[in-house]
Design a protein around this nucleic acid. Sequence first.
DNA 1: GATGTACCGTACCGTACGGTACTGCGTCAA
DNA 2: TTGACGCAGTACCGTACGGTACGGTACATC
Lengths: 227, 227
Amino acid sequence: MTLTLAPDTAPRQTAAPAHAAPGASVGEELSERQREVLDAVLKLMVAEGDGFSVAAVARAASCSKETLYKWFGDRDGLLTATVRWQASKVRMPKLPEDRLTGESLEAALTGFAASWLTVITGDLSIALNRAAVAHAGSGKSRLGEIVLTNGPFAMKRRIEPLLEAGRAAGLLDFADVTDAFRSFFGLVVADTQIRLLLGEDSHPDQAEIGNLSAQAVTKFLRLYGRG
Amino acid sequence: MTLTLAPDTAPRQTAAPAHAAPGASVGEELSERQREVLDAVLKLMVAEGDGFSVAAVARAASCSKETLYKWFGDRDGLLTATVRWQASKVRMPKLPEDRLTGESLEAALTGFAASWLTVITGDLSIALNRAAVAHAGSGKSRLGEIVLTNGPFAMKRRIEPLLEAGRAAGLLDFADVTDAFRSFFGLVVADTQIRLLLGEDSHPDQAEIGNLSAQAVTKFLRLYGRG
DNA sequence: GATGTACCGTACCGTACGGTACTGCGTCAA
DNA sequence: TTGACGCAGTACCGTACGGTACGGTACATC
């Protein structure tokens, strides 16, 4: 039996529930060949935005259009599967497991910041976010929702426990964890993402990202650190 | 003689220089009828993203396609003129003119923050930013550049003098004004804009914007305030 | 070897859209 | 009154694209 991500009987629905965690099992449901195809789509998106035709995908992936339609239902299904596939590949740094200290908290926050900046300044993330933003505009398609879930929301879900742990350990002081997250996000990302999305090509390298992260965390700790 | 924004001899170039200030004189070069047409385009963009057809514009504005092409050259010229036209309408709060005090600086910063949040959470701004982001992806067209110039860059140009003045008055303390601006932008905007662009429909009302602005400025002053 | 299946390559179809050309009408100036 | 002109309305053209159909091939299973 063929694995069909968007069968005719329920076109827009994949096997994964709507608000599932970062698409952990998406990769499992795809054959090797299908993953190759989706990687080809990712390349195309980086190269040309989401303006490419399905024929171009078939050409780039050396497969037939008919197969694409059988596997993914329609163009939107193809894009959706691609975004999910990419989302399933992103990994975040893990939290410190033993008792938090000032140093380990700062290191963990800096790690998150650097990791996040690395992701959002990457060509792939920029291309996918552009596509998602564009599709969020014209209704029709849940790309925006998916990117939102696996982007800002995923970051929030990952960081808030760290902040709470910091507070529990007497290292941080805040009343509202959402507010603290907002500040963290703002200090880290600032205008970087919107500028890149709008086409400015000032990609920071790893050294700059290191600096930006350290500075952002320093400021965050000056605002929310205890003592 | 007809006012042609994109004459055949130089299709992509308007009368205004490429990196002109926020399009101050754009409105001057447009006839009343042309402004009506562009306002119709703005409405369409809010309603449908930038997926509308030129025929739809003609229908919505009760004018002929031929006129649209004569005035604006091509679809891109129409979009560009629309973005410029909207940019020329945005006004920022003015700087305090007499000697800065702690109170007037805080008020000015809060005013800027609230004004900026009001703009970027507006349907119009969201629609235009979406279009600009999408076009920045597929090369071809300078929408991204224009929005960048009239968005983040314009804000930076307006705020940095205020920050410098605050430092000169002994109210602020920072080494790098760009860094200070980055923090200000981040604390004010945080994840608000990207979430809206990705389709989340949690538009803050004026009261919330007031709160967010005040909190952002409080944090900013805790980071950069003197005394 | 026969049958079925998965897939590639490609031809094909309908449509929607960007862009152009033509027609007719109202306005204004000579 | 007449002609020029700007523009609305619409018909038209070429093309590109989403989606489908079909022929051909490799491989597996019996």
